[in-house]
Nucleic acid binder design. Structure first.
Lengths: 189, 189
DNA sequence: GCGGTAATTTGATGTAAGTCAAATAATAGC
DNA sequence: GCTATTATTTGACTTACATCAAATTACCGC
């Protein structure tokens, strides 16, 4: 697991038990079946979704083509950052690729927690920080790596994506055509 | 100005005068002459740099090529997010492209302010949020727009960059070769 | 098992944009 | 002013990757 994510987790666990109990009241567990949309363009995001089990993805449609921007596994948090922060309608889909077990963290109630307990605000801030750094890294990868290098990086950093998902989705995540991905893979064997 | 930046500014101004005074003690004004580096790879960032006057840029070197990732004008904040958040050595340069007047915001002292006043922490958090959303948008542009579309977007959103900076820098910011940028421009006239 | 659909691979061809190289144009120093 | 240097433009050529199309393979439901 990423060391920064680990720090966030450790901090969460070390919250005052009283505070932790109160925070956890905000969490609601939910089941989503495969193919369901957790968010659609036009809807304003009202919750973070902690994926407890299964796989989900975020994507948007550009020129009749689905572009996958994030893929979520166990312990990942699915959210349209844009819609959450700016409190405006999303322009992305969040889709359950398998049956999911998710924990819903309602913004309104979590917001109250943040204002009541600065340590909760800190954890939320660290989460955003992680997101920002992750985006910056991705941006750097797009600027410097070609198709096969991006694939190599994916295999190194997020091998589960290549392992569990169909070429179509992996290719759109790497921003290459599925044919090119297929060719890259065949060269490696 | 971006509406979210405006919100951050308004909030800053509306801080309790007592708090504001204390925060401003942390700010130190400084002059940097053209060509100076405010940060170099290997150094760990110890301060945010608010540009009061002049132009600066952030870039990194990849395969003997300078890749400009951010350009700062009046009221922008120059910082290696990565180095700041992870508190690790930076891998980017921050360079004064003109003579600069900057306000240095020391992390250590600002950190104390954040812990003392939750409203200061909130402002810092909003700044990071803005950064994250900005990165996400850039990422989306790289995924969906070709060279001339990226240039068009630049002219629409950050025209000053194209106006005040040499082709070399603008091209590396758009992640295209300077020759291509020159050709795009000549086609538009 | 078999037929039908969807996913993946393979091949042929097109193109946006990179690279290399040379020609202008702009800028600064003296 | 003129030269030296640097920045920008223009041209010829190359290449990584997309697109289109067809072939193969995998995956279902019955």
């Amino acid at each position: 697991m990423d060391p920064y994510i680990k720090r966030i987790k450790d901090l969460s666990k070390r919250l005052d038990p009283q505070v932790l109990a109160e925070v956890e009241e905000v969490f609601v567990d939910k089941h989503c079946s495969k193919g369901t949309f957790l968010l659609k363009p036009g809807q304003t995001s009202t919750a973070h979704l902690l994926i407890r089990k299964g796989i989900a993805r975020k994507y948007f449609v550009h020129k009749d083509r689905e572009i996958t921007t994030e893929i979520y596994f166990h312990d990942d948090v699915a959210v349209s950052l844009d819609s959450y922060i700016m409190q405006k309608p999303a322009d992305v889909y969040i889709e359950a690729l398998t049956d999911l077990e998710v924990t819903v963290i309602d913004y309104r109630r979590f917001y109250q927690m943040k204002n009541k307990y600065p340590e909760v605000m800190l954890i939320d801030k660290m989460f955003i920080e992680y997101y920002a750094v992750w985006f910056e890294q991705k941006l750097c990868e797009f600027r410097t790596l070609d198709a096969s290098e991006r694939y190599a990086k994916l295999m190194e950093k997020e091998p589960d994506i290549a392992r569990f998902l169909p070429v179509t989705i992996v290719a759109s995540y790497l921003n290459i055509s599925l044919e090119t991905l297929s060719r890259i893979r065949s060269k490696l064997t």
